[in-house]
Design a binder for these strands. Structure first.
Lengths: 107, 107
DNA sequence: ATTTAATATTGCAATATTACGATAAAGGCA
DNA sequence: TGCCTTTATCGTAATATTGCAATATTAAAT
């Protein structure tokens, strides 16, 4: 069938999976890393830096935006994307909780 | 084209993305959580617990195994899957490093 | 108002993922 | 040996993802 049966899993499990899916592409990892390295947040050169076509970059940015990780504001003609700090720390906590809650003392 | 252009990204970026992709499905999150809750590591009831067909569970286990997160050993008739503690901690460090290295002081 | 530059959207092709029925393989047990 | 139970693999259908060319949109600049 090809459909994820999300309804049989808990909200927590689904949310973690959704966030992981956004991180599951090197371009999106690279985009996040690049934005974080910028002093200002003008990022209209992502296309040149990453090496993917402009529509593709736009789509990846949209995926990242969907989980609330980007705040976008206009600065003149150009769009300015920044990382949403509160959301970022929230996700960091979620992942860390997931990793530490797993009991590995077996075998 | 539909192909991830992995060659234009760094090994670190690709590796993080590969691991995130494994976590990007609620069934695999649920499987990891279930295995971690077991005292022993006999996990032949995953099919009943998760609610997916046996071949599907087998495939998910295989995805998790591919990134080295599972150690499998035979115990009589049944296969025993356990979490690979060293690998688990390694991935926890990778994710934590990624999350903490991102500079969010902008906007 | 027209041009220019940056980003978004649409449409489509190639490929990947998800899921399961059918079947195979392997070990334990009668 | 033959049967049962458990896990793996194959084949296939449905859907999702990735990527880009073409086009649309938006706002600044001329």
């Amino acid at each position: 069938m090809g459909v994820s049966k999300t309804h049989i899993f808990s909200p927590t499990q689904n949310e973690l999976a959704v966030v992981a899916k956004v991180l599951a592409h090197p371009a999106r990892i690279a985009i996040l890393e690049y934005i974080s390295r910028q002093d200002s947040c003008i990022c209209n050169d992502l296309v040149d830096i990453i090496g993917l076509a402009q529509p593709t970059i736009s789509q990846h940015l949209n995926e990242i935006k969907k989980i609330g990780l980007l705040k976008g504001t206009f600065e003149g003609k150009n769009l300015c994307y920044c990382i949403n700090q509160e959301r970022w720390e929230e996700l960091q906590r979620s992942f860390n909780e997931f990793f530490t809650n797993i009991n590995r003392n077996c075998c």
